[in-house]
């Protein structure tokens, strides 16, 4: 392809390794600040004790080089390619090589098994990296964002196929049901990602990607920003609280994203992340 430049596989692998190490040890400032604010205002005594422990945990992880959570998660890599930039052949192998190197270096726990239905033998290196590729990256470069997601909160994922007429209240009810069902086991205070529209798998993917948005930043569209605020209040009024111990901070934020849907459908994906929302990002320029 003329005029199209490729990221070198070794640069790609090295960037992935650094991102995986950083995300596992160094809690993002937006998440840490949200936890600190929650700890200051929490009225539940046990929840406050838990929130303070989580802030202390972030400090110990950073200073001692210990993973924020023993469940070092399943790894997602979101690649946004700039104009005229492409990934090299074998980019999946390069991403896996970077992840394998990070797993050995920290070291991370090997949390993935083969043959999930029968043998469940540990794979030993956390591969495969789940790679999501799209356009919209910086000019003459690419933005790589890595997210590590733990299994406890992954088990709280829900997909709802609402009636198109159920509207925003239907979305709010769906989120509340998902949170009431599994929120206490998903390591609250949680972050709730909501994908509205697309098809069933697309709604879940949208919800997952919404977790990349910095905490506290509202959707640019007013109606969705309002739905986020309203859903966050409703989730926090469940009283589940940090670690499920009863309190005001059940969620740190709710993010909603939308996409075109079929005339017959209103898919709503609810992807819940624990408080240890581990992500890190880097821009590569060519």
């Amino acid at each position: 392809m003329s005029g199209c430049r490729e990221i070198a596989p070794e640069d790609f692998a090295a960037a992935v390794e650094e991102l995986a190490v950083r995300a596992s040890l160094d809690l993002s400032p937006d998440v840490e600040q949200a936890l600190a604010r929650a700890a200051e205002t929490e009225s539940g005594p046990l929840a406050r004790y838990a929130l303070k422990m989580l802030l202390e945990n972030a400090r110990v992880a950073r200073e001692e080089g210990l993973p924020l959570c023993q469940d070092t998660g399943m790894f997602h890599l979101f690649v946004e390619l700039g104009e005229g930039v492409s990934l090299p052949c074998g980019y999946r192998e390069a991403a896996d090589a970077g992840l394998r190197a990070a797993t050995a270096r920290v070291p991370l726990r090997s949390s993935l098994v083969d043959d999930p239905l029968f043998d469940r033998a540990n794979r030993g290196d956390n591969t495969p990296m789940l790679v999501h590729v799209e356009e919209g990256g910086p000019r003459e470069g690419a933005r790589l964002t890595l997210m590590a997601k733990g299994g406890g909160s992954e088990n709280a994922t829900r997909l709802y196929m609402l009636l198109p007429g159920e509207g925003p209240d239907g979305v709010l009810r769906a989120v509340l049901e998902a949170v009431r069902l599994k929120g206490a086991q998903a390591c609250p205070p949680i972050v709730v990602g909501v994908g509205v529209g697309s098809d069933a798998s697309g709604a879940v993917e949208l919800a997952l990607k919404s977790l990349l948005r910095p905490l506290g930043r509202r959707h640019p569209r007013k109606e969705l920003a309002e739905l986020e605020e309203r859903t966050l209040s409703a989730v926090n009024s469940t009283g589940i609280g940090a670690a499920g111990l009863g309190g005001d901070a059940t969620a740190l934020d709710v993010h909603v994203e939308e996409a075109p849907a079929h005339i017959a459908c209103l898919p709503v994906g609810v992807v819940i992340c624990c408080h240890s929302l581990r992500r890190s990002s880097v821009e590569i320029s060519l």
């Binding site: 422990m53 202390e56 945990n57 110990v60 001692e64 210990l66 924020l68 959570c69 390591c187 624990c274």
Partner: peptide, 13 residues
């Protein structure tokens, strides 16, 4: 007994 989920580095220390 309940441990605080996600306080793993602190607990590991």
């Amino acid at each position: 007994l309940v441990g605080v989920g996600g306080a793993a580095a602190l607990l590991g220390s």
